[in-house]
Design a protein around this nucleic acid. Structure first.
Lengths: 146, 146
DNA sequence: TCCTCTGAATCAGACAACTGATAACGTACG
DNA sequence: CGTACGTTATCAGTTGTCTGATTCAGAGGA
């Protein structure tokens, strides 16, 4: 069977390489790709929203809540986010960006945007749009399986 | 900036979820997704080829040679591959599939093929073909960066 | 009002990759 | 023929996820 018939495997292998590049990009900013993903979910909050819970962040960045817990601890230590509420099992905590967090994101955006341009990925804008669409299909299909 | 403009990030996040499903699939067969990738590279050898080196396998499955070394040790222990040559630093070793390895692959193929069908990924065959093509563009672009 | 069940957060350990360093082979060139 | 350099495989430690289990809150229903 031709290798290119293994679309899921292709996806995972290709993304693995992309992920390594991402990690390199963030290494200079003391962040991991998932921490960055968490920060941009928090940046995206509308006015009036009081933060997101750890569980909600986990859903949005597609990792386990336990993993988000660990990385949030690190972000709190770096002063990039705040955790409100007493914490503990069963207790929802509110997570919000700090001013330092906003500043860190502002510094991160230029190289992140550069890396995400279609050209950086060897694609045309139309192809990048298509890739995003196809990935959305895949995410939906896997969500339906749950 | 809209999240869907972060194509690279989309790719990594989506593939992460796909990768978890892959791991679940292989867990029942005492394999990891990367071990499976190694086995299919070995299966694909033409007649007359004497095996692949660890370095060559690493290039083909897109992980570090040190990581391939560890996983090969595991595959040898499971009797799925053989290592020929004395081994050691600087010494190329030949890696080849055993009969047990071929049998393990035969058992693995049906669920793997099922998981890689376009339908399983929420795609049409044309879309799956397109995704494979786009992923190849991305891999090429990143290879050129090296 | 009480009980049950679902969801949330924490705890603990495992794992499959990674990075960095090192030792030796093998090839090419002077 | 000897040297230098690139490649190969090994060694050692780290990391960012995972899984499984546990504890507790809170909502909903009886």
């Amino acid at each position: 069977m031709a290798k290119d018939a293994l679309t899921a495997q292709n996806l995972v292998q290709t993304a693995h390489v992309v992920g390594l590049r991402f990690s390199e990009l963030f290494a200079g900013m003391d962040l991991t790709p998932t921490q960055f993903a968490v920060l941009i979910e928090l940046e995206r909050l509308d006015d009036g929203e009081e933060g997101l819970t750890q569980a909600e962040l986990a859903r949005r960045v597609l990792v386990r809540p336990q993993s988000v817990g660990v990385l949030l601890t690190s972000l709190v230590e770096q002063g990039l986010v705040t955790r409100t509420g007493p914490g503990g099992r069963g207790r929802r905590v509110g997570i919000a960006l700090t001013e330092a967090g906003r500043a860190a994101l502002e510094r991160a955006w230029p190289p992140v945007r550069a890396f995400n341009t279609p050209a950086a990925l060897g694609l045309t804008p139309a192809q990048a749009g298509m890739l995003d669409e196809l990935l959305e299909h895949v995410r939906r299909a896997l969500r339906a399986d749950d």
